[in-house]
């Protein structure tokens, strides 16, 4: 199969997976406990690394931009730059990349292991639809949790930026926070929350598809885990561009 055909085939398979997961999601039995468990694993479990990522990204933004701003006499606008960059771009994208690494790999490895050890077949044989039991809760948890994690990353990024601005450059907290408030508009926040919804869908569907299409034993599990993380990350970055353009068009 040539690479283009293979790509189209994979795209079709992933689209079907999402379709099946959502079409059957409210059929009985509804696996609410599984939804909650996945939200806990994905949301609460990823919180420390996301907050750390946000905090140090905010810090490094201040570190790298303060001198340039000061050169033009705009050091009081450091908060605006940090908040704007974080909320519009870095928060959603970095959170999605961290979650793709942590959760995308875990989902793909777990489902892949279940495939090679015939647990998925066993599940189907016992009358359970794996799309509803395994795929839907993971994708839904990602769609719901990633925006919340992103908001956390944004907040901690602003805090990190403020601490660095104050401790290293002596910028007053009030000045920093005022520029943050002045620099952010409602559409920035809306855009910053809409993006992770799509990123959650991308990470979940890619990871579930790669996991469920695992072939070739434990080596295959490793392969599908790697390709899930790489593919999800690349698609997130590509989608970010088109989403940014679309949101610019819609919100502004």
């Amino acid at each position: 199969m040539n690479p283009f055909k293979k790509f189209l085939f994979e795209l079709q398979e992933t689209a079907f997976l999402v379709y099946y997961a959502f079409v059957r999601v409210f059929r009985r039995p509804v696996y609410l406990s599984e939804w909650v468990r996945q939200m806990d694993v994905i949301g609460v479990g990823s919180l420390p690394i996301i907050l750390l990522t946000g905090f140090f990204t905010g810090g490094v933004l201040t570190l790298q931009s303060y001198d340039t701003l000061a050169y033009y006499g705009g050091q009081s606008e450091t908060g605006r730059l940090v908040a704007y960059s974080l909320i519009r771009e870095l928060g959603p994208v970095l959170s999605a990349l961290m979650v793709a690494g942590r959760i995308g790999s875990a989902i793909s490895a777990e489902l892949g292991s279940m495939v090679v050890s015939q647990q998925i077949d066993a599940m189907r044989a016992l009358g359970t639809d794996p799309y509803r039991k395994l795929v839907a809760p993971r994708i839904i948890a990602l769609i719901l949790m990633l925006p919340l994690l992103t908001v956390g990353a944004d907040l901690f990024g602003i805090i990190g930026g403020g601490i660095v601005a104050n401790s290293l450059f002596g910028l007053d907290y009030n000045v920093f926070l005022t520029s943050v408030r002045n620099g952010i508009a409602t559409e920035d926040i809306i855009g910053g929350v809409i993006k992770p919804i799509f990123f959650g869908l991308i990470i979940g569907s890619v990871a579930c598809h790669k996991g469920l299409s695992t072939k070739g034993g434990t080596v295959g599990v490793g392969r599908s885990t790697t390709s899930a993380v790489v593919l999800a990350s690349i698609v997130v970055i590509i989608a970010d561009f088109f989403l940014s353009r679309a949101l610019q068009h819609i919100l502004e």
Binding site: S113, S117, Q118, Q119, R124, A125, G127
Partner: peptide
């Protein structure tokens, strides 16, 4: 279809090669 197969699968028990227990 997969949904229609559910009532058929309810009549059948399957013992897998390695047990295929849910870890």
């Amino acid at each position: 279809s997969e949904a229609q197969m559910m009532h058929v699968r309810a009549k059948i028990g399957m013992v897998f090669q390695e047990g295929a227990l849910f870890d």
